[in-house]
């Protein structure tokens, strides 16, 4: 009986071994795929599909309901290149990044360093400094909206005590972007502070101790120990703040709606306005793609030049 079976399946044996070995050879990959499946599904739905759809839409003009109605090739991009308002938007975005990123990080770093000292009641300060993290963009924008109010705002009241002409914070195009930047820096501080403080506390105490024994000054320790040891954290926070700055939306929507004279029409707000107010998904998608490349280039540059200075333990 046994022999018969063997005889019957003789020809199939090598094939089975092959099949088995293929399955077993890819076992690891398949397991990996299984583990990745949830994120692949999520990314496909929320990242890849919208991305491809954006590229697709950027070649169309959309009708009043926002449905793609006419294929126009690269017309949307040509329009953007010529559009004065898009140039303004890019300029405003770059200026905004320049105003907010360095100041946010330097402020937060300063606060983190002073809050890293071991003093009585330091917890109170740490909580205070990081408190803006717990506030939503909408809530903080509304607070600033009142502070900036042209006729009854607190800041202008204060200025009038010193007999300084009231500043039209959100109404004057030369001030509006600065006002938005101030708001943003204030909002960024909490999160940036918290991450930097975490980074500072991770630095090995022994390094400072031995440096102190060698007679190193505060600034020397700062330059040679704190900054290098903090560099991965700093790098992370710079990248995140930079990307966030490029994508600022909430405070613009609440404080200025992109006005006055389009001076605060940051690129994401401009995308929103084109897409969801004017229902020009074509031009909006084209802008989104431009933004994507902007962020990509900045990030690549950062990795190329910035990361060299990062010291990983």
């Amino acid at each position: 009986m046994k022999v018969v079976v063997d005889e019957e399946h003789k020809g199939q044996i090598p094939a089975t071994i092959n099949k088995l070995s293929f399955l077993s050879r890819t076992l690891n990959n398949r397991t990996a795929l299984l583990y990745l499946l949830p994120s692949i599904v999520l990314f496909s739905v929320f990242v890849f599909y919208p991305m491809f759809k954006t590229v697709y839409l950027s070649f169309f003009l959309t009708d009043l309901q926002g449905r793609p109605a006419e294929f126009v090739g690269l017309e949307n991009f040509q329009y953007l290149i010529q559009s004065e308002s898009f140039h303004k938007s890019i300029k405003a975005t770059l200026l905004f990044v320049l105003y907010t990123v360095p100041i946010s990080i330097v402020t937060a770093l300063f606060l983190a360093i002073i809050a890293n000292e071991k003093l009585k009641g330091i917890g109170v300060f740490r909580t205070l400094f990081s408190s803006t993290m717990g506030m939503s963009v909408a809530a903080s924008s509304v607070i600033w909206l009142f502070l900036f109010h042209p006729s009854i705002g607190a800041i202008n009241r204060l200025l009038s005590i010193f007999n300084i002409q009231a500043i039209e914070w959100l109404v004057d195009p030369s001030w509006a972007l600065i006002s938005i930047s101030i708001t943003t820096i204030w909002m960024n501080t909490g999160f940036t502070f918290l991450i930097l403080l975490g980074g500072l506390q991770n630095i090995d105490e022994n390094l400072y101790e031995s440096a102190s024994i060698d007679g190193a000054s505060f600034w020397y320790k700062m330059r040679r120990i704190t900054i290098p040891m903090l560099s991965p954290t700093l790098f992370f926070i710079i990248t995140i703040t930079l990307i966030n700055a490029f994508q600022t939306f909430g405070q613009v929507d609440i404080l200025t709606k992109g006005g006055p004279a389009e001076s605060t029409n940051l690129i994401v707000y401009s995308i929103y306005r084109e897409a969801f107010i004017n229902y020009q998904f074509g031009t909006a998608s084209a802008q989104a793609i431009v933004l994507f490349f902007f962020i990509l280039i900045v990030t690549i540059l950062q990795f190329k030049f910035g990361e060299k200075r990062v010291f990983y333990q």
Partner: peptide
Amino acid sequence: MKKVGYSIIILWFVLIMSACSEQTSK
């Protein structure tokens, strides 16, 4: 190796965040 892993994670962040920017308002 650790460095490469770090970079990949951050690059992912970039991709996700820029793709999401259009989504939020929706």
